[in-house]
């Protein structure tokens, strides 16, 4: 598994992909952070993190679109699938590489943002809340990356992988608006249960929610599992 992880990291760092992702994330997060905190004269960063979730619709596909689709197109997947490595190893290594770049870049942006905020802020920062937000955003990011990985395994066209990932992530976020249009309390509760934003809200308050954690980890596990199934099934068809 480790060689594949290493290769993916190498591919990110020697091609434009990794740098485009990092540059876009740092730029967007910097701008949004200034608008939602410094300009609003607040040290509460919850709005910033929630807005960042919507930015993931664009950011995550950059990271995941080529993970499997390119290997399929150039047939390099043949060396992976005919080497003594399990399919789980291949899928998880790729997921982990994308997650590493994502978490690493996010860590840098958080460091820049909060150090700057601390310099200019009149009030002290609420560290437990910030930590809650960071944990939350890492979990959501992991879940979304797993979705991107899955979408990338379905096609050999990177553009299709990117667009479908964008669509699915956007839908999972916008589900949050639906309950206000629905009368049935049961359906409303059901939608709330699925809504990423409703789950994420716990973390923005600085609360570590076990159910929300389980929810996000489950999404990641389910989509990685589905990716493995895609590869198993393609062997048979």
């Amino acid at each position: 598994m480790y060689p594949i992880y290493k290769r993916e990291m190498h591919a990110y760092l020697t091609s434009p992909t990794g740098y485009i992702f990092a540059a876009v994330l740092l730029a967007i997060s910097g701008v949004i952070f200034s608008f939602t905190t410094v300009w609003m004269r607040t040290t509460d960063s919850s709005v910033y993190f929630t807005v960042m979730l919507f930015m993931f619709t664009v950011l995550i596909p950059i990271l995941t679109m080529k993970l499997f689709s390119e290997e399929r197109k150039t047939r390099t997947e043949q060396i992976l699938l005919t080497s003594p490595v399990s399919i789980f190893g291949i899928v998880f290594a790729k997921f982990l590489a994308a997650f590493t770049l994502y978490a690493g870049t996010f860590a840098v942006s958080c460091f820049i943002n909060f150090v700057s905020l601390r310099k200019v802020a009149e009030k002290a920062l609420n560290f437990p809340q910030i930590m809650g937000n960071i944990v939350g955003i890492l979990l959501v990011g992991g879940a979304f990356i797993a979705i991107g990985v899955f979408m990338s395994s379905l096609t050999e066209n990177q553009a299709i992988a990117a667009v479908t990932t964008f669509g699915v992530i956007l839908a999972m976020l916008l589900i949050w608006l639906l309950p206000s249009f629905i009368n049935s309390p049961v359906v409303r509760e059901l939608i709330k249960w699925f809504s990423v934003i409703d789950r994420f809200t716990y973390f923005t308050h600085g609360i570590f929610s076990v159910t929300a954690t389980v929810y996000f980890v489950s999404i990641a596990v389910i989509f990685l599992f589905l990716t493995m199934r895609v590869y198993e099934m393609r062997r048979w068809n």
């Binding site: 190498h10 591919a11 020697t14 091609s15 047939r75 997947e77 043949q78 060396i79 005919t82």
Partner: peptide
């Protein structure tokens, strides 16, 4: 050791 029809080479390496 397998050499497929199209050699599985990573062109960026």
């Amino acid at each position: 050791g397998f050499l497929p029809e199209q050699p599985p080479l990573y062109l960026d390496m």
